[in-house]
Measured scan of single mutants.
Amino acid sequence: KRPMNAFMVWAKDERRKILQAFPDMHNSNISKILGSRWKSMSNQEKQPYYEEQARLSKIHLEKYPNYK
C-alpha cells in the first residue's frame, strides 16, 4: 500500500470532523467539500501536510525498498 499524499493526510481528520457535524452526509458530498476546502487553502496552510507526506514516504521507502 502506498503512503498517503498531503491531501489524504489532511482529509483523514477533516472527513472525521465533517462526519461528526453531519453524520448522514453522503461520502461523495464529503469528498466534494474536502476538495473545495483543500483548493482554497494557501501553500503555507498545506505545508505541514506536505511535510507529513514526506515523512510517511521516507518510512515507506525504508520498509519497502523494492516497492514500485
Rank of each mutant, 00 (worst) to 15 (best):
R55C: 04
L56I: 10
A6F: 00
K58D: 14
N29G: 11
K12M: 11
P48D: 05
N66C: 07
W10S: 02
R55H: 06
E62T: 08
N27S: 14
W38C: 01
K46H: 05
D24I: 01
L34G: 01
R2S: 13
I59V: 14
Y50H: 04
R16Q: 12
Q44G: 08
I33R: 07
E62W: 01
K1W: 09
S40Y: 01
E52G: 02
K1F: 08
P3W: 07
K46V: 01
R15P: 01
Y64L: 12
I59F: 09
S57E: 15
N29H: 13
I59D: 13
N43A: 13
Q44E: 15
L61G: 13
P65K: 12
N29W: 11
K12L: 07
H60I: 05
I30W: 01
W10V: 00
Q47C: 03
G35C: 11
N66Y: 07
Q53D: 06
K1H: 08
S57P: 04
D24P: 02
Y50G: 05
H60F: 11
N29L: 13
W10R: 02
V9T: 06
S57M: 12
W38I: 00
E51D: 13
N5P: 05
E45W: 01
H26Q: 12
P65S: 13
L61I: 11
F22K: 14
K17D: 01
N43K: 15
I59E: 15
P65Q: 12
K39D: 14
K46L: 04
G35R: 09
W38D: 00
R15M: 12
K58S: 10
I18R: 00
A6M: 01
S31L: 10
P48S: 05
Q20S: 10
M8K: 13
A54Y: 08
S42A: 01
Q47F: 03
I30T: 01
L61R: 13
Q20P: 04
D13P: 06
K1I: 11
D13C: 00
H60G: 10
Y49A: 02
N29Y: 09
P23N: 04
R15T: 11
R16S: 12
S40H: 15
W10A: 01
I33M: 07
K12R: 12
G35M: 12
M8N: 14
K39N: 14
N27K: 12
P3E: 14
I18G: 00
Y50L: 08
D13G: 05
I18P: 00
A11Q: 04
M41S: 03
M4N: 11
P65N: 13
L61N: 14
Y64G: 14
K1C: 09
P65C: 10
A6N: 02
A11H: 00
A54G: 07
Q20R: 09
A21G: 05
G35D: 15
Y50A: 04
I59Q: 11
I30A: 00
A54S: 09
D13V: 04
K32V: 09
K58T: 12
F22A: 08
N43Q: 13
S57V: 08
M41E: 03
W38N: 00
P3Q: 10
E52R: 02
L61Y: 11
Q44R: 09
F22R: 11
W38M: 00
E14D: 02
H60S: 12
H60W: 10
N29F: 13
R15E: 07
L19P: 02
M8F: 05
D24S: 02
F7G: 01
I33W: 09
Q53P: 03
D24H: 07
E62P: 05
I33Y: 07
M25E: 03
